[in-house]
């Protein structure tokens, strides 16, 4: 089994092509692969509970692991309590740990 890691740096309210990540991540998960989406930079803006974007909720429901970079959250004033259910606060150190695991493929978006 391959572990696919999507590093999403784009704000879904600015870049509609973030849909690519949702569709690809969900399809890979349905095929039986392990899939993680790591939100970084403006990608974390969709992680707020009040954000009107349901792509993260759909991915969480599909079994995709959702992580949000703590540094990016802090820079944008997003508190842990503001995160949507299913999104875990994480850090760049964890991302590095994942990147150097065997059978891991990383895609920056």
């Amino acid at each position: 089994m391959t572990h696919y890691v999507f590093i999403e740096s784009r704000d879904p309210f600015e870049s509609r092509d973030t849909r690519f990540v949702e569709e690809t991540a969900t399809a890979l998960k349905q095929r039986g692969d392990e899939v993680t989406v790591f939100l970084v930079q403006n990608g974390v803006l969709a992680a707020r509970q009040n954000a009107r974007d349901n792509s993260l909720a759909r991915m969480a429901a599909a079994g995709v692991s959702l992580l949000a970079d703590d540094f990016s959250l802090s820079e944008r004033g997003i508190q842990p309590a503001e995160l949507r259910p299913g999104i875990e606060r994480s850090g760049i150190e964890h991302l590095v740990d994942v990147l150097v695991q065997d059978h891991t493929k990383a895609i920056w978006h």
């Binding site: 990016s72 150190e93 991302l95 590095v96 990147l99």
Partner: peptide, 19 residues
């Protein structure tokens, strides 16, 4: 963009882990 900063953070974290 913020991408350079993120790249530097990844490099720094990896080196600190001995990678």
């Amino acid at each position: 963009s913020a991408t350079s900063t993120t790249a530097f953070r990844i490099i720094s974290a990896a080196l600190n882990k001995g990678i």
